[in-house]
């Protein structure tokens, strides 16, 4: 067997080994490489390769995030803010995802599930909950799924909503397989600040979805179809955001005096769950104006599995990489 003199002479199995090692944080690279020749295009766009690529590189990198607009804005559809070289996303004609960024969008009128990567979308049956504080989450409905290849598969949507008085919170779930909503589960609360925060994303951990309330965390159990409120919080500050930790457990992120603080939910020696602070990142030198009046920042989101937190203040939006503690400014967000 003559030794190969050029890459095209290599067997496909080895070409695959090479292409598997292309960097995942540069989507443009994969696109350019897929145009080299037809066999490479076939290989790179095949499901088997995509699964292997995901498994090889672990959690996918953050290539951008969806930013909700002001609810009073006439166009209430979220805007996509890229953080890597990636094309703009096709909005549904009326107005979006990989499961990793799947998002249910609620207005008083319509709910749409959007697949941003393909531009496909699906309108859900209308709900009889009118204008209230609401938030939602989209979940893969496949039992034991590793979420490598379930985009476009069956899904569930969970919607939570609070009355404007904050005394009652509802939840219901939708199944794409039956195309129907469940009955409403409801929770009466006497405490103040038990509002679901409008359009804030939830953290999905198995069958449990955690949504931020002003000073509490709302927990919805999909299996039991029941709501509860996590009342013990690290302190009395508002605007904490439940996050998914690297190990898949529940965490909490919030800003305290120019620092980003992170807590994890741990069981103590008496068997009681509590918040334990495990990280504090000083933002004073990296986030402009944070120590000035009106420059205070808030946590606005997180990216699953990649340890990234998004912050915003009057100066812009910032991406915080928790491992390296690197903070980068995202341009052009102030006016959004």
């Amino acid at each position: 067997m003559a030794p190969p003199r050029s890459l095209p002479e290599l067997m496909e199995e080895l070409v695959e080994e090479i292409l598997l090692r292309l960097p995942p944080d540069d989507p443009a690279c994969i696109v350019r490489v897929s145009l080299v020749c037809k066999p490479w295009h076939r290989l790179l766009s095949g499901r088997a390769f995509l699964r292997r690529y995901r498994a090889f590189h672990g959690a996918p990198p953050l290539v951008g995030f969806l930013r909700n607009r002001d609810p009073l804005d006439s166009c209430r559809f979220p805007s996509f803010i890229p953080t890597a070289s990636i094309p703009s996303l096709a909005h549904p004609a009326a107005a979006a995802a990989d499961w990793s960024i799947a998002w249910a969008w609620g207005t008083s009128q319509r709910l749409v599930v959007w697949y941003p990567t393909t531009g496909d979308w699906r309108e859900l049956p209308r709900l009889a909950i009118s204008d209230v504080m609401s938030s939602g989450a989209v979940l893969c409905a496949i039992d034991g799924c590793d979420h490598m290849d379930c985009n476009g598969g069956p899904f569930r949507v969970v919607l939570v909503a609070s009355s404007t008085s904050g005394q009652i919170t509802w939840a219901c779930s939708y199944s794409s397989e039956t195309n129907a909503w469940s009955t409403l589960a409801s929770l009466l609360t006497t405490s103040k600040f038990c509002y679901v925060k409008l359009m804030d994303r939830g953290a999905v951990i198995g069958d449990q979805i955690y949504f931020p309330m002003y000073k509490k965390i709302l927990k919805y159990d999909l299996g039991k179809h029941s709501l509860s409120v996590i009342i013990d919080m690290p302190d009395d500050f508002s605007n904490n955001v439940p996050i998914l930790m690297g190990d898949g457990s529940l965490g909490l992120a919030g800003i305290r005096s120019s620092s980003l603080r992170l807590w994890s939910r741990k069981v103590n020696t008496e068997g009681v769950e509590q918040w334990v602070q495990y990280k504090s990142i000083n933002l004073q030198s990296t986030v402009p104006g944070i120590d000035k009046p009106g420059g205070g920042a808030e946590v606005i989101g997180f990216a699953e599995g990649v340890n990234i937190i998004l912050l915003r203040n009057g100066f812009g939006t910032f991406v915080v990489e928790l491992k390296s503690e690197r903070i980068s400014y995202q341009q052009g967000l102030v006016d959004l």
Partner: peptide
């Protein structure tokens, strides 16, 4: 080889790798 590929246009990749 993957490192040799990244950052290049399809034509550059073809030339570099002897297509």
């Amino acid at each position: 080889v993957a490192d040799m590929i990244k950052g290049k246009s399809p034509m550059e990749i073809r030339r570099t790798l002897g297509f």
